[in-house]
Each structure stands twice: as structure tokens, then as C-alpha cells.
Design a protein around this nucleic acid. Structure first.
Length: 938
RNA sequence: GCUCGAGUGGUGGAAUUGGUAGACACGUUGGACUUAAAAUCCAAUGGCCAUUGUGGCCGUGCGGGUUCAAGUCCCGCCUCGAGUACCA
């Protein structure tokens, strides 16, 4: 009987679904194991062979843990809000929900076909109102919380209000907006309700604030940095300006230090931790206040410029200051004489996006404001400049420029002929700045003279503190996360406005569902797409959504029209799987109390500074507020590598109708054109007729062959529809089966490494499965012999180690060796073949189930205990020790395994072969390592 | 520029704490079976040299070093990849 994988796979997929084999319970006396793979965005293109890599690895591990006696949670769902469905809606008018539903069904079909052990009863979809109700709920919790720096955690906003009532905000240590004014308890009690709300907004963990964005007036929307090319929009080429807009933000900066510290407690890949560390960008230094010298009568108001520096030791080297063009003081301190010039410069830089400015590092530009600040120690006037090398978004948007110690300041000073005082002992700064902290000795700096970097820093900070003009400070690169998007297909905010102040919709009225709109584009007046809804506003008396047209009615209030960004829905889904159908709470205490956190999370490294950072932030917040028991959501994380495509190219001659084969293109004026990989065979030979049919514009082209064949060029590229290099898993399953695909994806190389797909090699694992199948065609109750047992236990040991180390590729090799050995041993013993089926089952579950049934079992193999490794079957009476002499002559000697080191040495020296090799000479040294090699040095 | 990672046959990749480098697979070549093909099975396959035969030399990006012994450890380079980028 042949290995009929199509029949077998369909049979067991049906069996698992009907018997709910992988449904997990929230109570068990088994230990728990939560294995999670990142849920996908269901795109219209469906899955290609690269997508399942991480799912297969996660599934192998989950199935392995099940065999090991764990109660395994292995869920799957869809991150189903997102841009592509919305863009499709804009183009075609088809509702994104319909597109999404279609795509999900397609995904499900493809996933089912691969035989995953997902518990589908727990499926979540971020675009499902039942799910996003709880995304909205988390938002409300964030709104109702503030960050207490003293207790170092998020607390209920009411505790803040009661502090305000008792002592104002002068004593409180909290994460809040920079511009928060100081007030007393009396002040607070005297504030109007609106003022109180405005102040609280500066403390809430999600807040409304004016944020600089890339605004495209023609498109009526905010664009992300990567949607802008050369200062105009990627779509349509419309101008883009930097603009302040009122947006929701998340106060993730409150968690900067804890997000950094938490990295030490989790088993995540080092590169990923590094990129989060980088992203958070902690730097230690000082904040220094410079007083602006009033120069004109109109500048009667006194101004202070606060800067952040990591080099307070160089403060005597300051010869100018630079403000970012967007700095709020620019308009206030510029002298009348410089107004025109400054105005022109600020306008010019506003037209360039921040990314654009950053990309253009070489051009030095700036302008003098005409104003001066007073040096805190020397009291000398320091000219204040504006320069676009200073970024508004980092630090305070202003720097004290020390040209002798910082290359950018140095270049700026050289360019504008600003003096470059040298404050370093024995250093030449005529060519470039000196930034070597380790070899710094300060000079020309009053009380800092002769001090090292470290001593000078602490001395400078101490002196600044005495003056009240500075203090030691830790600065983070991390910015608060803008949470508003002018999109349709996202979670609506559970927010309405009374007197322009945001109010949260009560839990019993959630979810606030997305309204129907006719157009998915922004409104003519520049409001987000939700502004097109005619049937969507909150009526507090009726507690219902009513027509938008009633907005001016006294009891009806406008709703927030922005939607949440893509990462909102994915920031808590891993916990929701624990109790996905709960309508009363985000999840029950019992459920999260049992499952706690994710034990193994598998997904791509591209989420390092997005999803994986935001999720850690939300988790820490939910932990602070007592909603989650752990402050890190995933203890171990694995990044699977990307499977890239192998694109094929034909070479079209620009001057004729000729298309040259790869070997003939050199010296010709050709352009490469993508050819669909399905038209090319394993030897890179093109199906020319197929190509002409596929691209009719080349039907009259002349294909110039080499050796009678057209050979394509190959190149490794990201797998994508537009590169015609997509390999579809459905086709592979049809030809070789899901088990072959699963094994092959693992066999391709180390899980965490990127590697190109090459279908040709799949025959190797497929023929392994056929051999495996054949091994079970003759099964007997005969006793296994020593060789059989050795082979089996060798395999158990290796496979178990491999799975624990995520070296899935080498265990596929181990299986192949095992089957080859058992075949040549003519092993038929059931007591060998039964455990072998279990070993294989995490990798190739369908065939394993079938073999298990052939062996006479009626229950699924999925819950059978993993075979136990026993050392004794590997132990032999003698072991071969290779012996090398002078590193050149070698022979093998069989010695008892338990022989001691000295004993081995004696035996080796007495051995005829040794004597022969030594030819009467005395060895200088005999090195014996039991179980390893014996070296005799002559 | 900075940070991290990686360089091993024609290809993907193996190789515990330093201990017979190239497992396993693809590909290639030869053979068996077949009218033929497919499928299957067997053999060879890092390079060079020698050969009637056992064999010898060189080999893990490059140059040094430590060691009886280095793909693995140390120092100095080169190349490629990923991330990040005027971070004060």
C-alpha cells in the first residue's frame, strides 16, 4: 500500500476538527503551557510558503509540550483592522468588513490544510466589536490613570485628584506634559471644571495634545514618514507640510525605564532587545538653563532656554546655542533686525519633513536670531542660533553648542565663523572636534580645570544646582506614541466631547461600533472618514448612537472621529485568548490566574519597536492596575527568519525584439524582466511558450537560446506578487502533502535565519515520509534487538534536545538517519515503531496519526506521552577510541567504556600498533581524554 | 557613522565543554530495473597528487597568536547581511 498523503491528511484534519482534539480548558491539574504565534493580518494575497514557517515551529513545540504532559494553549486569530482593506474599499466601494471576511476564510482554509493544532474555539479578530470592546476598555483605563513616579506605577486618576485637593501639584512626582503649571490646593479648588479637566489631561496615560504631524492638505490626511517622498506625498505627489494637530497620544515615556529594566527578565533574542534598548535610547547627562538676555524693549518678558547635554563637563566650551526651527522661543526672542531672515528659514524648514531633513546630513544651514543668552558661570553673552541639525523631537529641542567637543557643533561653527574655544588639555582641535571622553582633561574652565570627564561632569552638575540653573537628568529618545489615525478601518475611540473636553463612554454602552459610511475618504472639510457617518453621535439621554445631524442638540455630543492605530488591537490579544468570549470583563481572574503569561511567542523581528514594545507597555500598565498578574507578557520569544523568494529574470534587448538567455546577455544592452517562477523548471530553464502566453506583449519576441535552452537569471528577493516569485503552499500540499511541507520548511535551515525558498529540495523529505510509511507496512510483535533500541533511543535523545533548542532542522536529519537505520536493520518491532510515530508526530502529525492507528490505537496520537529516553540502550561494552600519533598517523582501538584514564594510557602504550608507530622511540607525552581521542606525541 | 549578526563543498546546511570538518538533504555522475519514461534501489561525489594496493598533501573569508589539538579561543583586518541614524 502506498503513502496516500491526500487521503490521510484530509482524514485527520476532519478528525481533529470533529473531536476538538486541541481544545484546551482553563482548569487542569497538568502544568500549563502557552505557545503563541503572532496572528496575521489577513491580506488578499493569501498565504505564501514563507508565512507558515513560524506557525509550523510553534505548532511543533506546542504538540511536543502536549506529548510531554502539559495543558497547552495554542490559539490563533486575525489582526483584521488595517490599511489594505480600507484602500480596497476606497477604490472599489466594497466594505472593508466584506473584504476582511473573504480574506479570513481563505486564510483559514490554508491554515487548516497545514494541520495546525490550533484551538479555534478561542479565535479572536481585532475588527470584531466583541473583541474591540475590550481594546476600547483598555483605552478608558489608560485615560483614567496617571503615572506616580514615587510608587513607580500607574494609579487611578482619582488618587491624583485627591492629592491636588490636599496639596496641589507642587510636591507630586508624576509623568506629565512639560508645560504643566504649578498650582496649590487652593488654586485647584478654585479652578473651573473645564480647567481641572484640562490639567488632568496633562497627567492621564492617554491624552489629547497638539502633535507635529506630516499633513497633506490635498489628501486631507496625516501621512506617515514613509508615505512621503521628496517632500511630496507618495500618492499623487501633493505637497506635505509639518503641522500641529490635536491627536490622542499614549504616555509610553512614563514606562521608559521599566521597559528597559524588564528586558533583563525575559528570554528574548539579544538583537531584538538591543533594538528596543536603542529605541528607548536612555542617555545620562544634565539639563541646563540659560537665561536669555533681553535686548529690545519688546522683549520685556524674561525667557529661559533649557537644554539637555550629556557633556556638562564641557560647559565652558559653549560658544553659541542652537534652537530647532520649531522651538517655541524662536518667535519670541528673534530681534527685529533678524525677523525677516529667521521667518524665511523657519518657513523653508517646515516644508521639509523631519525624515527629509535627517537624510540630508551634509548641508549645514542655520540663521542667527540676533539674541544672546547668558552663560551660567562666565555670564558672557552666548549668541543664539537656529539650525535644522537640532531636532525639535529630541531633548528640549535646543542645544548648548560646544564646537570643540562635538563634531556637528564644530561644523556649524566653522561654517558660520563662530569662535571655537578649546577647553581640552593637550588636544589639537584645528581640524576636528575632540569627543573622546576617556582621554578628556578639562582646561580653561575655571573650577573644572584638570578634571577628568567623570569628575568634571559631577562637579559641573553640582555647581549648576547651586545656581539653580541645572541638574543631573536622564533623557530618553522614546517619544509618546501618537494614537490617532484619520482612517476608517480601525477601532473607534470610546470618546465623546462635551464643551470640547473628551469624555469616556461608559462600559455598559461599549462597544462603540464603527458606523457605516458612504465614502472611506476624509470629508471635504478635512475631517477623518468617520465624519462621513450620518448616523453616529452619542445621545446621553437615550444612551444610544443617533444621527450625526443632531450634533447641536443639547443632549447630543460629537464623537471622536479618529480611529486607533494598527497596534491597538494587537497590544492585548495574547491575554484575551485566555478567555475570549467573556462579555463581562476583558478576561476573568481565574483565566489569567491560570494561564499567567505566554511561555513561548514566535513571530517576526520586524515588530521589535512596534507591536512588541507597545504590548510590553500595555502589559505593564495592566499589571500596575491589577488586571494582569505578570508585568511581562511573554517570557520567551523566538524570531523566525524570513523565507525569501528566488526570482527569475529574462533579459530583453533594448534595441531589438531579442530576449537573451542568461549566458548570452553580457555585453548586450539588456534590461532584466521578472518571469513567473512557475514557468521555470528546477534547472532554470524557461517554458518559452508559457511565458509568451503569460505576457502577450512579448509574443513576437525572439528568444535567443544557449544549448537549445532558455536559461533564466536568478536573484533572491522578498517574496511578493509583484516580483512573480511567490510559491503557494496549496500547490505544494497538493503535490507532496502538508507533512512534507512542514518537514521541508523546518529542514530548510535554522529557524531564526532568513533563507531562500527552493522547491526542488522537497523531494528529500517527501521520500523520507515514503520510507517511513514503508517501515510500518510490516509490523510485528517481535522483541527489538540491541541495534533497534540503540537507534530509537539515540533518536529520542536528539529530537528532544533539538526541540528544546529550536533546532528543528537537525531533527529532520535525525529522523532520516533513524528510518534508514531501522530499514537496514529490517526492524518490524512494534515496541520500536510505536514510540517512533510519537517522535515524528509534532513534525508530521497526519502520517503519525495514521501510523498510530495502523498500530492498533483508537485514540489520537496527540495526547500520548513522549517516549522516555534511557541511557542504558546507548551504552556498549567497548567503545572505539580513535588514536592519533603526531597528529598524522591514526588508528582505532576498541577499549572498554568504563576504563580509567591511566589504564587507557597503559593499554595504548602496550598496543602493537603504538609500538610500531613509535619504532622504539619514547613518546614525549600521551594525552588521554576518556571517550575522546588519544594523542601520542612523539 | 553607530549597534548587532554572519562568512564551512556546486547548493541548503551539520559539527556538545576546543577533540577524526563537511552529518543529513539537494544537485551532479555512473549503474540496476524498464521497450521507454516516471518511480524505486545501489555506488561515487571538498580540492590536488599517487595508484596494482594500503595512501599522501592542502583545506572552514584573510593575516598572526595560544594549544598535543582551533570552524570553535585571543589579536588585527576584509567582505556580506540586518537594524538604526544630525539623539546633543
Amino acid at each position: 500500500m502506498n503513502y496516500n498523503f491526500r487521503e490521510i491528511e484530509a482524514k485527520w484534519q476532519k478528525y481533529w476538527a470533529e473531536k476538538e482534539t486541541f481544545k484546551s480548558t482553563n482548569t487542569s491539574n497538568k502544568p500549563k503551557f502557552y505557545a503563541l504565534s503572532m496572528f496575521p493580518y489577513p491580506s488578499g494575497a493569501g498565504l505564501h510558503v514563507g508565512h507558515p514557517l513560524g506557525y509550523i515551529a510553534g505548532d511543533i513545540y506546542a504538540r511536543f509540550k502536549r506529548h510531554k504532559g502539559f495543558n497547552v494553549l495554542h490559539p490563533m486569530g486575525y489582526d483584521s483592522f488595517g490599511l489594505p482593506a480600507e484602500q480596497y474599499a476606497i477604490q472599489t466601494g466594497q466594505h472593508p468588513a466584506i473584504t476582511t471576511e473573504t480574506n479570513i476564510n481563505r486564510y483559514r482554509e490554508q491554515l487548516d490544510q497545514l494541520g495546525f493544532s490550533f484551538d479555534w474555539s478561542r479565535e479572536v479578530r481585532t475588527s470584531d466589536p466583541k473583541y474591540y470592546k475590550w481594546t476600547q476598555w483598555v483605552f478608558i483605563q489608560l485615560f483614567n490613570s496617571w503615572y506616580n513616579k514615587t510608587s513607580d506605577k500607574a494609579e487611578d486618576i482619582r488618587t491624583l485628584i485627591s492629592i491636588f485637593e490636599k496639596e496641589g501639584n507642587g510636591t507630586i512626582e508624576a509623568s506629565c506634559d512639560e508645560d504643566t503649571p504649578i498650582f496649590s490646593a487652593e488654586d485647584w479648588m478654585g479652578f473651573s471644571e473645564k480647567t481641572k479637566q484640562e490639567i488632568l489631561l496633562k497627567y492621564r496615560l492617554t491624552y489629547l495634545a497638539d502633535t507635529e504631524v506630516n499633513w497633506c492638505p490635498a489628501l486631507g490626511t496625516v501621512l506617515a514618514n514613509d508615505e512621503i517622498v521628496n517632500g511630496v506625498s507618495e500618492r499623487g505627489g501633493h505637497p506635505v507640510v509639518r503641522k500641529k494637530m490635536t491627536q490622542w497620544s499614549m504616555r509610553i515615556t512614563a514606562y521608559a525605564q521599566r521597559l528597559l529594566d524588564g528586558l533583563d527578565t525575559i528570554d528574548w533574542p539579544q538583537p531584538l532587545k538591543d533594538s528596543q534598548t536603542n529605541w528607548i535610547g536612555r542617555s545620562e547627562g544634565a539639563s541646563v538653563t540659560f537665561n536669555v538676555i533681553p535686548t529690545e524693549p519688546s522683549h520685556s518678558e524674561s525667557h529661559k532656554i533649557e537644554v539637555f547635554t550629556t557633556r556638562p563637563d564641557t560647559i565652558f566650551g559653549v560658544s553659541f546655542m542652537t534652537l530647532a526651527p520649531e522651538h517655541e522661543l524662536v518667535a519670541k526672542i528673534t530681534t527685529t533686525g533678524q525677523k525677516a531672515e529667521v521667518g524665511t528659514y523657519v518657513e523653508a524648514t517646515a516644508k521639509r519633513s523631519e525624515r527629509d531633513r535627517m537624510a540630508d546630513v551634509k548641508t549645514i544651514s542655520g540663521v542667527f536670531t540676533g539674541a544672546y543668552a547668558e552663560h551660567p558661570f562666565t555670564k558672557e553673552p552666548v549668541p543664539i542660533w537656529i539650525g535644522d541639525y537640532v531636532l525639535a523631537s529630541y531633548g528640549t529641542g535646543a542645544v548648548m553648542a560646544v564646537p570643540c567637543g562635538d563634531q556637528r557643533d564644530y561644523d556649524f561653527a566653522k561654517h558660520y565663523n563662530i569662535p571655537i574655544p578649546n577647553i581640552f588639555e593637550g588636544v589639537d582641535i584645528s581640524e576636528e572636534a575632540f569627543a573622546d571622553k576617556a582621554n578628556t582633561i578639562i582646561a580653561n574652565s575655571d573650577f573644572l580645570n584638570r578634571l577628568s570627564y567623570k569628575d568634571a561632569v559631577s562637579k559641573a552638575i553640582a555647581e549648576l544646582e547651586k545656581l539653580g540653573q541645572g541638574e543631573g537628568k536622564v533623557n530618553y529618545r522614546l517619544r509618546d506614541a501618537v494614537f490617532s489615525r484619520q482612517r476608517y478601518w480601525g477601532e473607534p475611540f470610546p470618546v465623546y466631547y462635551v464643551d470640547r473636553m473628551p469624555q469616556m463612554i461608559a462600559l455598559e454602552h461599549l462597544p462603540l461600533e464603527l458606523p457605516e459610511v458612504e465614502k472611506y475618504l476624509p470629508t471635504e472639510t478635512g475631517e477623518p472618514p468617520l465624519g462621513n457617518a450620518t448616523d453616529w453621535a452619542w445621545d446621553t439621554e437615550q444612551s444610544a448612537v443617533v444621527s450625526n445631524q443632531l450634533i447641536n442638540h443639547t443632549t447630543v455630543f460629537p464623537l471622536e472621529l479618529n480611529t486607533m492605530p494598527g497596534w491597538a488591537g494587537s497590544s492585548q490579544y495574547f491575554n484575551r485568548y485566555m478567555d475570549p468570549h467573556n462579555d463581562e470583563a476583558i478576561y476573568s481572574e481565574e483565566a489569567i490566574g491560570y494561564w499567567q503569561d505566554v511561555d513561548l511567542y514566535i513571530g517576526g523581528s520586524e515588530h521589535a519597536t512596534g507591536h512588541l514594545l507597545y504590548s510590553r507597555f500595555w502589559q505593564k500598565f495592566l499589571f500596575d492596575r491589577g488586571v494582569a498578574p505578570k508585568d511581562e507578557f511573554a517570557r520567551k520569544l523566538i524570531n523566525q527568519g524570513m523565507i525569501t523568494g528566488t526570482s527569475a529574470f529574462v533579459y530583453k534587448d533594448l534595441d531589438s525584439k531579442n530576449i537573451f538567455s542568461k549566458g548570452l546577455k553580457n555585453g548586450k544592452n539588456v534590461i532584466p524582466i521578472h518571469a513567473d517562477v512557475s514557468l521555470v523548471n528546477a534547472s532554470d530553464e524557461l517554458d518559452i511558450e508559457g511565458f509568451k502566453k503569460w505576457q502577450p506583449e512579448y509574443k513576437d519576441a525572439e528568444f535567443i537560446l544557449e544549448d537549445g535552452k532558455y536559461i533564466v537569471g536568478r536573484e533572491i528577493e522578498k517574496m511578493s506578487k509583484s516580483k512573480y516569485n511567490v510559491v503557494n503552499p496549496d500547490a505544494i500540499c497538493e503535490e507532496y502533502g502538508a507533512d512534507s511541507l512542514r518537514l521541508y520548511e523546518m529542514f530548510l535551515g535554522p529557524l531564526e535565519q532568513s533563507k531562500p525558498w527552493n522547491t526542488a529540495g522537497i523531494t528529500g523529505v517527501h521520500s523520507f515520509l515514503k520510507k517511513l510509511w514503508k517501515l510500518y507496512t510490516t509490523v510485528s510483535d517481535s522483541e527489538p534487538n540491541a541495534d533497534n533500541l540503540k537507534t530509537l533511543h539515540k533518536t529520542i535523545k536528539k529530537v528532544e534536545e533539538d526541540i528544546e533548542n529550536f533546532s528543528f532542522n537537525t531533527s529532520v536529519s535525525t529522523f532520516m538517519i533513524c528510518v534508514n537505520e531501522l530499514t537496514s536493520q529490517k526492524c518490524t518491532s512494534k515496541s520500536i515503531l510505536a514510540p517512533l510515530a510519537i517522535l515524528v508526530s509534532p513534525y508530521a502529525p497526519h502520517i503519525a496519526e495514521e501510523l498510530w492507528e495502523c498500530l492498533g490505537h483508537s485514540e489520537s496520537i496527540a495526547n500520548t506521552p513522549f517516549p522516555k529516553f534511557e541511557e542504558k540502550y546507548l551504552v556498549e561494552s567497548t567503545k572505539e577510541y580513535p588514536i592519533s600519533f603526531n597528529g598524522k598517523l591514526r588508528f582505532k582501538l576498541e577499549l572498554p567504556l568504563d576504563m580509567g584514564k591511566d589504564e587507557i594510557e597503559t593499554v595504548v602504550m602496550a598496543h602493537d600498533k603504538t609500538k610500531e608507530q613509535l619504532q622504539g622511540r619514547e613518546p614525549k607525552k600521551v594525552i588521554v581524554v576518556p571517550g575522546k581521542i588519544v594523542n601520542i606525541v612523539g
